[in-house]
Amino acid sequence: MAFDSFSAFLAMEGHGPYVWTCYAVFVVFVAGMMFWSARRNRAVIEGCKRRFEQQQGTSGQDVRQKASATFTRVEVSQD
């Protein structure tokens, strides 16, 4: 450990605010980007799944029950 105590680690001899701001912003942006990318991926998969199920529904027997699913269908943005 390059520091004597935890408070010295936080203070970083006066450079603490600079160093910790950088690390915090870095972690927030990288974690945020990972999270949003994963979320959008899941949303697209769910959207496709719902559409495929609905297609199967309309071509199959249980038309009335599946038709209500169109209202809850999530339109996934293309961007």
């Binding site: 970083m12 001899e13 006066g14 450079h15 600079y18 160093v19 950088c22």
Partner: peptide, 8 residues
């Protein structure tokens, strides 16, 4: 020279 700020 820079102390701990270089950790960035």
């Amino acid at each position: 020279l820079q102390g701990n700020s270089y950790r960035i």
